[in-house]
């Protein structure tokens, strides 16, 4: 579904990508890991036709990102690092806006379906400026689903979300993949990749240093030894348990 080979990109002196290769199969969740500044967003911007590579090739849904950008844009949706929603419009208007631009048959009906599906029906008529971070991110992802593009790019989809918001987004991503959409996500949370991704690639110093399924990556390290450790609940488990009780 996505095929990248020998990708190069420099910003003046800074050589960010030095020959990146990977493949993403249709209907899978692919997680790109890397530290801040490793070039994850650069790869994403190239795949989303927002940036031209200096060298190498990249195809999405069979279309070349440089020579067939219009076809690539038909095939994808991009959800950026900061929820790219219109704050002055209401949630519903945001969805209708994207629906009109993507020329779906029934922008209003599509908007209402998505609002219900993402638990935003109640807030539909409120300006997005009044939404919480989690609601914005959900709206952002909902906007990406309009027109059912076969490939969805998510740039750090859970950065800045509280634990509940993060779990909600994870559920959405899982549902997407279950319905056959190819999901490409970048993250710096290793746990997120572990929970969601079918395949994981680690970007370091401009190249993919390892990639594979979680099981394959585990084999890179010496076999697990059995140790007995008293297991304390994590703070996240405590937080979620208490918050749930309060409801």
């Amino acid at each position: 579904m996505i095929s990248v080979s020998g990708l190069h990109k420099s910003y003046s002196e800074l050589h960010v990508l030095r020959g990146v290769d990977f493949e993403v199969t249709a209907g899978s969740i692919f997680a790109l890991l890397g530290s801040n500044g490793a070039g994850k967003t650069t790869i994403l911007r190239i795949l989303a036709t927002l940036l031209k590579p200096d060298g190498g090739t990249a195809t999405v849904n069979g279309f070349d990102v440089v020579s067939q950008p219009a076809e690539v844009r038909e095939s994808i949706s991009l959800t950026g690092q900061f929820a790219a929603v219109d704050e002055i419009l209401t949630g519903r208007e945001n969805l209708i806006l994207i629906g009109r631009l993507r020329r779906v048959d029934d922008p209003k009906g599509t908007a209402d379906d998505l609002l219900a599906r993402f638990g935003l029906a109640e807030a539909a008529g409120r300006r997005v400026a009044t939404y919480s971070g989690g609601m914005r991110r959900r709206l952002d992802i909902a906007m990406s689903l309009i027109g059912t593009p076969p490939v969805i790019f998510l740039d750090e989809p859970t950065t800045g979300l509280d634990p509940e918001g993060r779990i909600e987004v994870w559920q959405v991503i899982q549902q997407l993949a279950d319905s056959g959409t190819t999901v490409f996500l970048t993250t710096q949370y290793l746990e997120e990749a572990e929970k969601l991704a079918d395949r994981i690639a680690i970007l370091h110093q401009g190249t993919i240093i390892v990639s594979g399924t979680l099981a394959e990556l585990r084999e890179l390290l010496p076999p697990a030894s059995v140790e007995y450790v008293e297991r304390q609940p994590t703070l996240e488990e405590i937080f979620l348990a208490i918050v749930k009780e309060q409801r």
Binding site: R73, E74, G80, A83, A84, V85, D86, L101, M143
Partner: peptide
């Protein structure tokens, strides 16, 4: 600033 400019540019419009 808000990134909606990039969203529009990644869309088939």
């Amino acid at each position: 600033q808000r990134g909606i400019f990039e969203r529009f540019h990644s869309m088939p419009i």
